[in-house]
Simulated assay, not measured.
Amino acid sequence: MRLQFILSEIGIGLRRNLSMAVSVILVTFVSLTFVGAAALLQQQITQMKDDWYDKVEVSVFLCAQGSEEPTCAAGEVTEEQKAAIQAQLEAPEIEPFVQTVYFETKEQAFASFQEKMSDQWWAAEVTAEDMPSSYRIKLADPEKYQVVADVLTGRQGVEEVLDQRRLFDSLFLVLNRATLVSIGIAGVMLLAAVLLITTTIRLSAMSRRRETGIMRLVGASNLFIQLPFMLEGAIAATVGAAIAVGALWLGVRYLVTDWLGTQVQWIDYVDAADVLAIAPFLAAIAIVLAAISSVVTLSRYTKV
């Protein structure tokens, strides 16, 4: 009997404030979509770092003919300088940070250059003598790049020490800033959702103040009086969360997996399973929103 009464009160409240309930659903949907997008974007960044940082190399380019670097003032790198660099890479203080070392000759560098730049008209003007030889170093821990760089940078015969990770850091910086923007927008929208849920509950409570007064006179508890209002906000917020999860699932499924995944295939993207993994998190946020709004509102507007 009590359950039937509570359900009846919820239906009455939602019908009386239908437009406000729809507004709560829409604002919750938009805000949680931004929250979910930020979570998925951060997960994508972490996934890309795990995949790419393990594959990057440190490239130590040696002096070529005509180099203007101060460390190349004596001209092209000599065999003695190469031996000194190789010995430094095998030194006890550096060896634990190095997994493998591969030496690329000028001829090998020229062949790789021709393969990648064969469609450029100016590539025909480049010869093997113009190419620098280099050491390609695979690190045991990519985060320890600076240890190797500090030892080799500035040595005679070394033109440049380049960490491939730098190429990705700019991309990750942009993505991280996009995450922060999404979080900021989500925060504003979540605040709007709280205010709307509060307004909805307040209007519903005010429109039924006479009924709640009668219920108090007959001895109804605060929980029994307030529960229908609390559930109204919770239902509207949960519906918004469900729509947000559906929108994120469709976006990932069709925009990321089906479209972007076929255009750029060398990236391991987040998928629909990741959306389902964050769905309970989004639902929990919706419930917390409703709970905060209920606590703020009901203690005042359900009093006789």
Rank of each mutant, 00 (worst) to 15 (best):
A83N: 06
F110Y: 15
V98R: 03
S170A: 14
V194F: 13
Q99R: 15
T153N: 09
S207F: 02
M1G: 13
L289D: 08
L298E: 02
V256C: 01
I197T: 15
R300T: 10
L162Q: 14
F97N: 08
G13K: 04
T33A: 15
L255F: 14
G184L: 04
S293K: 06
S294N: 10
T302G: 05
Q263R: 07
A193W: 03
C63L: 06
L217Q: 12
S19Y: 09
I85D: 07
G157N: 00
A241R: 00
Q88D: 06
A290H: 08
A279H: 10
A111Y: 00
I214A: 01
T262I: 05
F168M: 14
T33W: 12
S59T: 15
F97M: 06
A186V: 01
D150P: 02
W122S: 10
G246Y: 00
K303G: 04
Q120L: 13
W122H: 06
R165N: 14
K144Q: 15
V252R: 01
A205C: 08
G154P: 02
V275K: 02
I214W: 02
T199K: 13
I137D: 04
L14W: 01
A21F: 10
K49T: 07
Q146W: 07
Q86E: 13
P142T: 12
Q114G: 06
I25K: 00
V194S: 05
G184V: 02
L7D: 01
T179R: 13
I137Q: 08
E93Y: 00
L203K: 13
A87N: 13
E107F: 05
A87S: 14
A128R: 00
K303W: 02
A205G: 06
T127F: 01
I183E: 02
A123T: 07
S207V: 01
D130Q: 08
K138G: 06
V296I: 12
A149M: 11
D50Q: 14
E57H: 09
R202V: 11
I137L: 11
A237F: 11
I45R: 09
E115V: 05
F229S: 12
P280F: 07
G233T: 10
R165V: 13
F168N: 06
I225M: 07
R209D: 00
A178E: 00
P142W: 07
R177S: 11
Q156V: 08
F29L: 14
E80N: 08
G187W: 00
A236W: 07
M1S: 13
A111K: 10
L171K: 04
Q43T: 09
D141C: 10
V304H: 03
F29R: 02
L231E: 05
A279V: 06
F110M: 09
A283G: 11
V151H: 09
A111D: 12
V30T: 07
T257G: 00
L227F: 14
Y135M: 08
R300K: 14
A38Y: 01
K138N: 08
P96G: 02
